[in-house]
Design a protein around this nucleic acid. Structure first.
Ligand code: SF4
Ligand code: SF4
Lengths: 184, 184
DNA sequence: CAATATCGCATGCTTTCAGTGCTCATTCAA
DNA sequence: TTGAATGAGCACTGAAAGCATGCGATATTG
């Protein structure tokens, strides 16, 4: 259980690929052929990552994608959140204010209604659920794991065990969003 | 992303319910009505938990279910594994010998072909995947979280933070399986 | 017997996921 | 200017997973 989607893996692979080659631009075809990913689908994923501000795209011949965030300050969690929606093992995990900061890559820029994933219907059992609290604790622990690992940890053979533990709820991808938002 | 299924939550709720009332037997209807769970579906879940040896069922009037494992020694992970299959964020997580001990609740009794979840097709990108190692580390950390929490932690308001850390790959549900297996 | 359970299997519905097709817009180089 | 390469946008299909229900059989209690 708790399997990631294919899209997520493709996205992570692509981001890892770009992180290994700072400055260079890699096209969707390059990456797709290199790793055996369906080209067409990868393009879809890259588009999404571009919208969220994790990569910068340049069109035309010899175009491609470049990483647009700091690999050491961008957690795996936010990348996945951009591809699959906020991490929530259970429905009630999103109830507090927590899910608000997940959607986009930047800070609280978006009017909170932009993301196309947000089904926002709250659990029916909420009133009578006996496991809410404990499950919440498990959820937070799991979330913390995704938070601790950064893009850098995806390309290095190092531990990646206890990095960026400080500021446990920070770690997001700041730049390159405002520009994209202005347009829409 | 990484949402649990409804079945899992129902199962956990039921187990928590039973753990709070040792000795007493609760019927599927009792539990279903108490928490607002679809009765028919809960019955299906309980059947599954019964087969895996986590609960003991007694039929007939005034029958019901009883917990059949030690709440302090049964991790949340094995319960979920019994309901949704082994925990694997990615396909390649199951390749080693690891998934073998997940299927059932007891020790290595079953011929490893009993579980009705085991699609056992290995990832096509495995040869070229650049994130395999790092993802594996994340996977293990997540798995450890599910391992640390026990059934007992589901009913107590306590931390449940660092219990049963020792013996990190043990923690399974031993008894009440052999009998059920003999039949089939 | 009658009431109350679980058990076992089958079925229908809905949502998600993976993957593809096609067209348009943009860039660069010949 | 032309054309090849590349990303962007939108829609669409097929398959699988998940949720839920129905019905009949069987076991147990009183
Ligand atoms: S309230 Fe209970 S049942 Fe509903 S989502 Fe939260 S944990 Fe699951
Ligand atoms: S090999 Fe790479 S792509 Fe395949 S399952 Fe493992 S991590 Fe995902």
């Amino acid at each position: 259980m708790l399997r990631l989607t294919r899209r997520s893996e493709y996205g992570i692979i692509a981001i890892a690929h770009l992180a290994q080659r700072p400055g260079e631009a890699a096209s969707a075809r390059d990456i797709a052929e290199r790793y055996g990913i369906p080209k067409r689908l990868l393009a879809e994923v890259m588009k999404q990552l571009s919208h969220r501000g994790f990569v910068r795209s340049s069109r035309g011949a010899s175009g491609g994608y470049q990483l647009a965030v700091d690999p050491t300050r961008t957690s795996v969690r936010v990348v996945l959140a951009a591809l699959e929606g906020p991490f929530e093992m259970v429905q009630c995990a999103t109830d507090g204010a927590r899910a608000l900061e997940d959607g986009e890559a930047g800070r609280a820029v978006a009017p909170a209604a932009s993301s196309h994933f947000a089904q926002n219907t709250l659990c029916e059992l909420l009133g009578s659920c006996p496991i809410r609290g404990p499950v919440q604790r498990i959820h937070d622990r799991m979330r913390l794991v995704l938070e601790e690992f950064t893009i850098r940890d995806l390309i290095s053979g190092g531990d990646g065990a206890v990095p960026m533990t400080a500021g446990l709820s920070t770690a997001f991808a700041p730049p390159a969003v405002a520009a994209a938002v202005r347009k829409s």
